[in-house]
Design a binder for these strands. Structure first.
Lengths: 191, 191
DNA sequence: GTCTATAAGAGGATAGAC
DNA sequence: GTCTATCCTCTTATAGAC
């Protein structure tokens, strides 16, 4: 990869960051170039210099968001504690439940779902996240099929917690869902 | 409630049904009056006669959708079988996972979340659904707090299953999440 | 690289005839 | 109650000067 010949392009960074924030609040389709300009403080021409179309900016911002979210998940799930502890820490990780998941909410976004490249980004996010969590369960001796089902259920609980908490405008459902799942995972089994 | 003086107003029905379908596919904000007109075969003036604003139509369509979804849930969860059987039947109910939940997906819809009346509709849906499922768990002798956490976790698994299946464009994650949750719920506990 | 001005088109709503 | 024609605004993108 060749280094950019300019001095870092601060405008580009500001544009991507502004787009990420607006995507989280309003979604990709509902984020307008004007909002990005206002929030970033960058001028009209600069936006279209760095990103010829709205889609180019969306692609850059969503790519960045997925990278950040995966890095956060890895820092918890690849820690040095025991597998059950890492699962517990992942599930009880502090979340702004009412704001929703930055990636998960994009599955209801027309601009993302109608563009295969954008959709692939969020597909890869969940494929990778499921793989990481599955490995943690499997590490504990569970067979791979069961580990994957349990991992998917755990991640679904978090995603569903976001959905319900957003619907109610209340973080409690997320807390309930996580506690319900933790209780199920940690009960003594006689199987 | 007074009966409408006209002969049933077929146009109105067609408009609501068309809006419901379009909301499921594209969301509320992304559904335009023009799309509703094309899909329903109704003329421009008729739409604005029955629904003065787009919001009025959205309100009617979302209200109808929530009613239909709750009725479907009740028919499974208030059946005559045992509580564990009803939970199993609710979770393994056939779903178009890739299409997403007609209600849950609206939590990422700007038109819904920016309008308190519309948001209340989807909040009430989940409050009611959680209450119904909680009752089923409690009926089985579980204490109310634990029953509510388990109910919320179960519903979150379904909602999260939708999110992940949509992201991947594949019904398998929903199946995995449901199977993972069923396995956890039905394991023999020694607590 | 950045700016201002502006054009092409879609979305939401209204007017007024029938 | 329903229709066609029309209006205003916002979004997206381009043009061309600096």
């Amino acid at each position: 990869m060749t280094t950019k010949h300019t001095t870092g392009t601060l405008s580009r960074e500001r544009l991507v960051k502004a787009a990420q924030d607006l995507h989280w609040k309003h979604g990709v389709a509902a984020t307008t170039p004007r909002q990005v300009l206002e929030r970033s403080g960058v001028g009209q021409g600069s936006l279209y210099h760095h990103f010829p179309t709205k889609r180019d900016l969306s692609l850059a911002a969503v790519t960045r968001t997925v990278e950040e979210m995966l890095e956060s998940a890895r820092s918890t799930l690849l820690a040095s504690s025991t597998p059950p502890q890492r699962i517990r820490e992942y599930l009880s990780h502090p979340r702004d439940a009412v704001a929703g998941c930055r990636v998960g909410r994009l599955t209801a976004d027309a601009a993302v779902m109608s563009d295969s490249e954008l959709q692939n980004l969020i597909a890869d996010y969940f494929v990778e996240l499921i793989a990481i969590v599955t490995d943690v369960f499997a590490e504990d001796g569970m067979d791979r099929t069961k580990a994957q089902q349990r991992a998917t259920a755990a991640i679904a609980t978090v995603q569903g917690g976001y959905v319900i908490s957003r619907a109610l405008g209340d973080p409690q459902p997320m807390a309930d869902a996580i506690n319900g799942m933790l209780e199920l995972l940690e009960q003594k089994s006689s199987t």
